[in-house]
Nucleic acid binder design. Sequence first.
DNA 1: AAAACGTGGTT
DNA 2: TAACCAAGTTT
Length: 352
Amino acid sequence: MSKPTKRDQAIAASIAGWFIENDRDFPWRTTPRNPYYALVSEAMLLQTQAARIAERFPVFIDRFPTVDSLAHADEQDVLAQWSGLGYYRRAKNLHRAAQRVVDEHDGVVPSDVESLLQLPGIGRYTAGSIASIAFDKPEPIVDGNVVRVLLRIEGADLPPTETATKKMLWERAETLVKSADSPAAFNEGMMELGATICTPRSPSCQECPVRTRCKAKKQGRQGEIPMPKPKPKQRIVHAASVVIRDKQGRMLIEKRDDSGMWAGLWQAPTVESDDKAPSKTMIKVIAGGKQIKRLNTFEHQTSHRTFHFTVYAAAPPSRRKAHQRWATDAQIRSLALARPQMRILLGDDGSG
DNA sequence: AAAACGTGGTT
DNA sequence: TAACCAAGTTT
């Protein structure tokens, strides 16, 4: 770590001071901060905008108010609380992390980065985040917001995903957080600044607490920094799901594999195929051999795939397959479902 | 090192 | 509208 300059100290003080006056009111921002809330909110916030989590966090906490309650919950119940949020591995990791906190740390969320890093789903960012925000320790954090803010402040036209760039950013973050009076306010301030002022496009530089010290602004290049990230390859997947109700109105559902996309979540009987839509024969097989009727189609976008879903209806088979079960609407609402299946099974398109 | 992993907001 | 990207981690 390099020695902080006068400019570094001024930047750290400006951003921490700005945050104290301009923090948004989120349910995990209690006074004082609750380390369990930090654990849960950080898991939810990975790659997800804070405004979206604001509605889901209180519901989750209502269901699992303490580390202990989360540790003793069924994994399916935790996953169910995650329905529609995506990256479902975060929920499994959070659940396991809570169990480890109970088993190995007497139910107290650890405050040091070393211990935090041992917990599943907690990497360098999250460990630093919990240590600094919940415990006010001078630990650096670098998330997408911090990358953008720091590269702009330095006017550094560097590829943000390169190892050398990341190394430099972590060092700058460390220098700055160690020169801040409140590491918590500085780190949260960096992210808040990136989320509300120093936005990816059309940043509000005139409202920025470090506008006089920002090299990108000085050069008028805040719109070009950071360079865009390379985007992942997209695959097209065709999926057919069959809605099957028995006489009592229950629906036939099955559990997905424990690995890969939507691991361990529930769905209507579904086939997927890469190149072209699944054959009618194949769909009838998963429908239990009865005649099928096409209901509707829709697209679903994920980070690496475009799904073309076709939804069918079929009469109930005389006998369900071993891996399938019948479930009432109420039961289905309490299961872990990915967005497309919420739509298929519950008629919930996510808009409400 | 690169790919997998979800879903929705913003411009 | 179609990019672009969000409080990243794991394999």
